[in-house]
Simulated scan of single mutants.
Amino acid sequence: MPRVLMVRDQQPRCRIEEIDDEQLPDRAVTVDIEYSDLNYKDAMAVTGKGKIVRDYPMVPGIDFAGTVRESASDRFAPGDRVILTGWGVGERYWGGYAETMRVDADWLVPCPDPLSSREAMQLGTAGLTAMLSVIRLEQAGLPAGSKVLVTGATGGVGSWAVQMLAHLDYEVHAVTGKPEQSQWLKTLGATEIHERTEFESDSRPLEKGRWAGAVDSIGGKTLANILAQMDYRGRVAAVGLAGGAELPTTVMPFILRGVSLLGTDSVMIPFEQRRVAWQRLAALPNGLFSNMHVDEIGLEQVSDAAEAMMAGKTYGRVLIDPRK
């Protein structure tokens, strides 16, 4: 009988429950989960502070990595190591905060060697999104060694983006509201640390050009300020909206400087793009994983960790071992 973290539209909102295998969703592939993680979207689902979960009861967790136990699909066989991120899992479909889960084969990608399940979830949606942002910037012609800005730098996407870009020899400037983590960000490879408040005021249509590229997970006024400060032919990979969905800008950065705003999605991207991104992630040096700050918890600690994340008290990555 697998244990799951069940979210219900009542109090207490979350509780650990044991369910029969017959209660798992009727889907093609049964996976024994070794690790999941905690993303901002997960924290909103667990705490109820965002409109993430609409159907109850729900097992949250937008990511997981584990081993196939049973498969009715010819794409996977028992013993295969797999990763799941996105596809509405943990929002519309039962997700990764469980010891075992059944999912559609189309939602899974093979876990590439030499990546372990734990390392896969050190990355998770955050690492995948960061890599997809890097790929988008590369495809848009980001010059080698150029200056790149990363917002939300202590979060999952931001901290991985800092490391990946620094590893590729870009000059990385990190934006954070947590100055106490400045030294850690420099350990990750950031050349310079910027206070978040530098990018929160109302922006003019154009400012002095400062950046050849940017990875932004904040949106709102922050993204508007970044667009106004891009160099000629600058490129911005937009990946999030922690600071709001509105974009108070003008067309001037686009028509006077040729700035590109590159929407970067990690939820619904096709299998082949996922596979390529995960292969690149698996090739990252071990040192990048060692540098990443990780808190590892069990299912019982998820609610507290989610509250802490919503309060801005976490950094790096939070891993969940459902067997604890």
Rank of each mutant, 00 (worst) to 15 (best):
E119Q: 15
D20N: 13
E198T: 12
V150D: 09
T191Y: 07
P112Y: 07
N291G: 14
Y93A: 13
T176L: 12
I62D: 05
V46A: 09
Y97C: 02
C111S: 05
G156W: 08
V68I: 11
Y315K: 05
P285N: 11
F254A: 07
L185W: 07
T250C: 09
V29W: 02
E300H: 12
M6D: 02
P57Y: 11
S201V: 09
R317M: 01
T250G: 03
K313N: 12
N286C: 00
V150R: 03
I226G: 13
R27W: 07
R196C: 08
V251N: 06
G189E: 04
M309E: 01
G298E: 04
D42H: 03
A65E: 05
M164F: 13
A153Y: 04
V236R: 06
M1V: 14
Q23E: 15
Q163I: 04
V134Y: 15
Q163A: 07
Q163K: 05
R13V: 04
E296F: 07
P25E: 10
V318R: 02
A43K: 04
M310R: 08
E91M: 12
A174S: 00
M268F: 12
T30Q: 14
R75C: 12
D106H: 11
N225W: 01
E91P: 09
M131H: 01
P285H: 04
M121E: 06
R13F: 00
R69C: 04
F254N: 00
G316R: 08
G127P: 10
Y170M: 03
P322N: 07
I83V: 15
Q183L: 12
R275K: 15
S71F: 10
D295S: 14
I33S: 14
L165K: 02
L227Q: 10
D32Q: 13
N286V: 05
A144H: 13
V31S: 07
G95H: 08
G88N: 03
Y35L: 11
S159V: 04
G213E: 06
